[in-house]
Structure formats: C-alpha cells, structure tokens
Write a protein that binds this DNA or RNA. Structure first.
Length: 607
DNA sequence: ATCATCACG
DNA sequence: ACGTACGTGATGATG
C-alpha cells in the first residue's frame, strides 16, 4: 500500500480516449500508479470513476508522492484541460527527458524502446496495443484483461528507467541543473501550448484566394499532363526534353531539379517555365499549410501546436502538428516567390504580439567558443554592436589584404562605413545578404556552399571569403578544431556543461551541436525564468509567451498592460531574465518588436 | 517506407 | 583518402 505520510517515488500514467487535447475532447478512462514496497514494484490500476476517481484525486493532492511520468507534458495537459487539481509543490520526473539527456543520439526515446534495450522488457504488449489502435479500438473497448497487463507494464517501466538513469544525472551538478530546468520548461511549454495562437481568418481566406489565382496562372506555361510536383517528370523535362546539362545531383545521384539548381539555370536565361516551377512549389506548399491550419484550429480559432521541449539531438525544441517553426516570413535572397504566411496569425482581441529575439545569438556564441579576441573586444566595448558589419567590411575589400590595417584593409573598412552612411538601403540589403556568412563559415561551409548561400558564383566571393578567413581565423577554423575535439571525446559539452554525443561519422557537425545546444539551453532557461516571473506576479493572463522559435519568444500582451506605466520596467526585467545567465560570458542582447494586427507586420518596439 | 524538396533558425 | 555548414517537420510522388 502507498503510505501518504512518507515521501516516495511513484510512476504515473493515464489511459485516455478521444483526440485533440486542447479541444477538451480527451477523457480519462483509467490510470496506473506504480510504487515500490519491500524491494518489489507494485502497480495500482484503476478506472477513472467512482472510488477510482477519489483515489486518484487524493494521490494528486499529496506532494509526498513524487511522480515519474514518461512524457509528463501529456499528463499535465490532461490534468489541466480536465480541470483536475494537483498539488502545486508536486515533484515531477520525466523518463523521456532523462533518456534524451543521457543518450541524445538514440534512435528512439519511447518507453517500450528504452525498457527493451536496457532491461529486455518485452514489447509484445505494445505491439498488440498498437494493433488495437490501428483497428480503430479505443481504450474503453480493448479487452479488460489485456489492458490491465498493458497498464501494469506502464507502471513498472518508468520506475525501472528512473532508477537506472536518474543517478547519472543527479551526480553531475551541471546536468542536474539542466534536467531541473527541462522539467520546469515542460510546465511552461504546456501552458504555452494551451494558450496557442489565433488564426487570422480573413487573412487566411484572402491569401488562399491569391495563391489559387497564382497557381491557376501558371498552367499556360506547361503541357496539360505535366505534374509540376513530380520531380521525376521535371527531370525528364529538364534533362531530356530541354537537353539542359545537369549541374547538381541529389543524394542518390539523380540530376537535381531543386530551387538552387533552377536559380543557377535562370542566371543564363529567365525562362518563365523554370521560374514557374519555383513559384508552384512555393504557392502550393503555402496553400496546403493554410488548409491544414483551418482543420487544426479549435472552436475559438486557436491553433495549439505540439512542442517537443528536448526532442532534437542538439537539445533544441521542435514543433509538430502543425509545425509553426518553419513558417515562411518575408522576402529573402533565396526566396523568389515569398508567401508571408505569418500574416495568418494574430493576437487575441485586446492583445498585441511582442516578438523578442536574441540578436545574432549563434554568431555571438561561435565567437565566444572560438575565442576570437578581436570580436570579443569589439563586443565588450559596446554590446549593441553589429557583428555583421565586420563581414560587410571583409567583402568590401578590393583585394586580399596582407595585414590588418594595410591600405587594402583600410579602404574596405572605409567603403563599408560610407555605404552605411550614404546608402543605408543598399547597405541594409548587403548586410542581410552577408548575415548568414559568419556562422556558415564557423560551421565549416566552404567556398562553394557559401556562394550558394549568397546566390553568387564562387569566383565572385573569392576575395571576400579569403579576407574573412584571414581576419577572423578562429571562426574560420572553429569547425575543424571542434571536429578534432569530437573525434577525441565522442561529443562536446555545451556552455552549461551538458554533454552532447555526436555521431562519429559526422564529427564535423560538432560545432553545430555545441552552438545550437548552448543557444537552446539559453532559450529554455529564459522561458522558465519569464514563466516564473509571470506566475509569481499573477499576471500571465495579461502577458504570456504563446509561441517561440529557436531564439525568439512571442509575448502576447494585453494592450492595457502595454500602455501602463509599469510596462517599461517589466520589459526591462524580462530582457534581463533572458540575457543574463551566469554561464554565458559573451554579452547577449534581446530585441523587442511589436505586431498589432498580425505576426508578419511588425516594427521595433519603441517603449 | 523512402526520396526529394523546402521552410525555419 | 578525401572533405563536408547543421538539425528539424511536412508533403507529394514513387516503388
């Protein structure tokens, strides 16, 4: 029996039916609670009705029961949407997070996969359960004796896994700190998902209309039976019918028809037939996106994505169903037919969206990790300085310089400076073009790849590239240096002391793991600190994060709060929570913007 | 299921 | 032996 007076570890899992958590259509059918008695694992399995309901409620309100779940965000969301109270001081553990933290490159972190690999725990029950689901059964229709066995297994496994993995996390102070932040981040993320983001109905309709018209207008360029979405048919059209000489190839060695290839081809001739293919891809994908969102919205027009807080091997977050992390925003160098889909999202009535992003965070972290002293000094001198200006300087030099401060070097610096003053528009275009250069070189991009990113030919950027490498040699050798480290240690520690394994066959991606992993940790710690600030001051109703993307948090904020006299202080404090972390020595900088009508139309926040 | 493609950072 | 920017999710076509 569970002892209500004694602190003890328990596992906890629901069986539910219905779909779509945040539409409140999920009902709890039954649950299991695992615990340990006299060195043996025991499992309580109950239906969520009558006496079973009361037992669960008592269990949830008792903070002596430490609750171990596998993917606790799901359990949390069920509790909250069903308005079932639980003790605010509950200690939670999540075995999925434990597995992700210790074995970031594992092929799967599902409960059955881990328990099988670590304990040889049978997966037959899971196989059968999946068969029932595939056949359209819901948990209430599954034979009771089978479901009982399945739930017992679900009570045992989290306890086994926690006992095996948690000590390795706990004994390392850094890892422990990261782990506790992950648990807090799940609480934040659950709330973020529940808030969700509102679809702008009128803009969705208007954009669909434009997209359909654009797609219909393309038909005249092609034979009627050509399927523009078929790369096989396009391959035939390009390389057999039009007799174009292949320049790029796919991973499997077939001649490629991707956007990059088409853009290279159109440099010779602006054939509408070629450009139309890019337009078709851009427009049809956008249309499919909007249609999917319209299906997924709840009855208030809100989209609730599923955000995996620690899914990626780098420790980054990821987003599914729908993925709101890859929405087309604005025109860019490599985006010929942009569809500003962020127009389809709006603040709730009475609110505005305040997107806040970490300025140039990846480049800043590379500079810090590579210890590129000239740039560190440049930044410490004034944290607001723009690092991309240095890149523009390098690419403004007429020849490869011999030493820093020689005539060639100084002239480049002067050209960049004058351009910034005299032609801000051209400067801005150039700056955003070269924005990706710094960290692409840091991650190991070569001349060819860089030319592709900049939409130029290798010989056009040869001088600039060489000047960058010569001026910032630590950034240029960062990828190589990190690769050597990976080959020796099998992985890399982030600035927070969290070890990330790296696939030995791709040791050269180590630089990326280090930077993405560190940035992700900064992002997730900032979210937890903001979340706690809102909870403590009880105004998450008026201001909350309802969406985030890698280095950006979107604060949905009530207009009355925005206009209040206390807002500047709140904004200032939140910035500090996101910027100031003991482990990060390089200055970070948050940039606030405001979007009043929709997520796409935004400007700098003047407050 | 796998491939090719493309959006984000 | 060589030299690579990276890691995500969604979609439609294909075998």
């Amino acid at each position: 029996m569970l002892n209500p007076k004694k602190l003890q570890l328990t596992s906890f899992d629901f069986e539910t039916y219905g779909l779509d958590v945040y539409n409140r259509k999920i009902k709890i059918f039954s649950y299991c609670i695992g615990y340990i008695e006299n060195g043996k694992i025991k499992v309580i399995v109950k239906k969520y009705s009558g006496e079973g309901k009361k037992i669960l409620h008592d269990y949830l309100m008792n903070p002596n029961y430490v609750k171990i779940a596998h993917n606790m965000k799901y359990e949390l969301s069920i509790l909250k949407t069903n308005k079932i109270p639980f003790h605010k001081d509950t200690l939670w553990h999540d075995t999925m997070i434990e597995s992700q933290m210790l074995f970031n490159t594992r092929h799967s972190h599902s409960l059955d996969s881990i328990a099988y690999d670590f304990f040889g725990f049978t997966r037959n029950l899971d196989k059968k359960f999946k068969e029932f689901m595939k056949a359209g059964y819901t948990v209430d229709k599954i034979p009771a004796d089978f479901l009982y066995k399945y739930q017992v297994a679900d009570g045992i496994r989290p306890l086994l896994i926690h006992y095996l993995l948690f000590p390795d996390i706990y004994k390392d102070r850094n890892l422990r700190e990261c782990y506790y932040n992950e648990i807090e981040n799940i609480k934040f993320t659950q709330q973020e998902e529940q808030f969700g983001i509102k679809l702008h109905q009128e803009n969705c309709t208007a954009m669909k209309k434009v997209l359909m018209k654009g797609l219909a207008g393309l038909k005249k360029y092609y034979r009627e039976d050509l399927n523009l979405n078929s790369s096989k048919q396009l391959r035939k059209l390009f390389y057999e019918d039009l007799k174009i000489k292949p320049i790029n190839f796919t991973a499997k060695g077939e001649p490629s028809t991707d956007k990059n290839t088409i853009m290279q081809l159109t440099k010779e001739s602006k054939d509408p037939m070629l450009l139309g293919i890019i337009k078709n891809r851009s427009y049809s994908a956008a249309l499919a996106n909007i249609q999917k969102w319209e299906i997924l919205q709840d009855r208030f027009g809100i989209i609730h994505p599923n955000i995996n807080t620690n899914w990626a091997r780098t420790g980054r977050r990821s987003c599914t169903n729908p993925n709101l992390y890859n929405i087309n925003s604005k025109a860019a160098l490599l985006n010929l037919f942009p569809v500003p889909l962020r127009r389809c999202f709006e603040p709730r009535a009475g609110f505005v969206l305040l997107p806040v992003d970490q300025a140039q965070i990846e480049l800043r972290l590379i500079i810090d990790a590579a210890q590129e002293m000239e740039v560190i000094a440049y930044l410490l001198d004034d944290p607001d300085r723009d690092l991309h200006h240095l890149t523009v300087e390098c690419f403004s030099m007429k020849k490869i310089f011999n030493f820093i401060g020689d005539d060639i070097f100084n002239e480049g610096v002067k050209i960049a400076k004058n351009l910034k003053i005299n032609n801000p528009k051209l400067y801005s275009t150039m700056r955003s073009a070269y924005k990706n250069t710094g960290f692409a070189i840091g991650y190991g991009a070569g001349l060819e790849k860089l030319a592709q990113i900049l939409n130029k030919k290798p010989n056009e950027i040869y001088i600039g590239y060489n000047n960058f490498v010569k001026r910032l040699p630590k950034i240029a050798s960062f990828s190589k240096d990190t690769t050597a480290h990976i080959e020796e240690h099998g992985g890399i520690k982030t600035a927070f002391g969290r070890f990330l394994h790296v696939d030995p066959a791709k040791a050269y991606s180590g630089a990326n793991y280090l930077i993405q992993g560190t940035a992700a940790e900064i992002h997730k710690r900032g979210q937890v600190r903001c979340f706690k600030f809102f909870e403590k001051n009880k105004f998450s109703k008026w201001m909350h994060i309802n969406l985030d993307i890698y280095d950006e948090n979107v604060f949905e904020t009530h207009k009355s709060l925005l206009k209040s006299s206390e807002f500047p202080a709140i904004k200032n404090h939140l910035s500090k929570l996101m910027e100031n972390l003991d482990r990060i020595k390089i200055p970070l900088k948050c940039e606030w913007q405001i979007a009043e009508n929709n997520w796409n139309e935004k400007k700098d926040l003047a407050i």
